[in-house]
Each structure stands twice: as C-alpha cells, then as structure tokens.
Computed example of a mutant assay.
Amino acid sequence: MSDVIQSGKQKMNFHVETVRVDSHSSLSRCKSAEIVLDTDLAGNPNALNPAELLLSALSACIIKGVERVAPILHFQMKGIQVIVDGIRQDVPPKMEFIRYTVIVDTEESDERLHLLHENIKKYGTVFNTIAPGTDLAGEIRRK
C-alpha cells in the first residue's frame, strides 16, 4: 500500500494480485499475506467464495474502525465479535441485503456504544462502499 497525492489530499492506494490455481481455487496476494479463494463453480469448502470474502471484508472494516476510534473516544473494551449475514439475489446478481451484529465486551454505557456504532458507520471504507448499493443494516450490543 502506498500513498498517492490527488487534489492536494493524500489518498491510500491498494494493490492485490490474484491467480487461478486450478478449477477449484485461486490465490490472492497482498503485501506478505495470501488467501485462498473459492472460485470453483461447485463450491470449495476450504476457502471463502467472493460473497463470503465481501462479508469478511465488512467484518474486518468494522473491527478496524473500532480499533481506530476506540483510543480517540477513550472507549474501553475487552473484545469484539462481528456476525454478518447476507442474502444474494439472482437477477441481477448482487447482495440483496446484509445484516450485521457487533458484539462488544465492554462496561461502557449504552450511549457510548451508540457513539461507537455511529463512528463505525461514518468512517468505514468498506462499510461506506457497500452501503449505497445494498440494504445494509445492523446493531451494536454488549456481550
């Protein structure tokens, strides 16, 4: 990942390379990381398919957003879990809707939990990429 200057503002640039391994899987590489992808038309139980990868990206975005804003908000927590479910429609093929639950192990007040959720929704890159084209909704709650 490198930074690019556009219109006077620094922008983040991402680079991923994916290769077909065989008729069952592909391999994506980014930085020093690799992930096996299910690109088999029959499905591959040992890898994430593209829709599952999208839902995983949303989960990671939510957790990374919490990691980013928790120190700013002085939000105390012991852990976090994100559960995401999506429904795919066939025509046209897309995620019809996505529902998520963020479960936070915290003693913070309900108001502070709500503030954390608002920050997740406002500043999440993947969240804000998915939201305009999908019925995306969720909740945050205490463990």
Rank of each mutant, 00 (worst) to 15 (best):
M1C: 05
D3C: 10
D3H: 14
Q6H: 09
Q6K: 13
Q6S: 08
S7F: 13
K9Q: 06
K9P: 00
Q10Y: 03
M12I: 12
M12Y: 07
F14L: 10
H15P: 00
V16H: 01
V16T: 09
T18K: 00
V19W: 06
S23I: 05
S25W: 04
S26L: 02
L27F: 03
C30T: 14
K31C: 03
S32D: 15
S32P: 04
A33E: 11
E34Y: 13
I35W: 05
V36Q: 11
V36W: 06
L37F: 05
L37H: 02
L37Q: 03
D38H: 04
D40C: 12
L41R: 14
A42Q: 12
N44K: 08
P45T: 04
A47T: 06
N49G: 00
A51M: 02
A51L: 09
E52V: 09
E52T: 08
L54M: 13
L55M: 10
L55S: 00
L58G: 01
L58R: 00
L58T: 00
C61K: 04
C61T: 06
C61E: 02
I62E: 11
G65F: 02
E67V: 06
R68E: 09
V69A: 07
L73H: 03
F75M: 02
F75V: 00
K78F: 02
G79F: 09
I80M: 14
I83T: 12
V84M: 05
V84N: 03
G86I: 06
I87Y: 05
I87K: 10
R88I: 13
R88L: 15
R88C: 10
Q89V: 00
D90A: 15
D90N: 12
M95T: 07
I98M: 10
I98H: 08
R99D: 08
V102T: 07
I103Y: 07
D105T: 09
T106R: 00
E108S: 08
S109I: 11
D110H: 11
R112D: 13
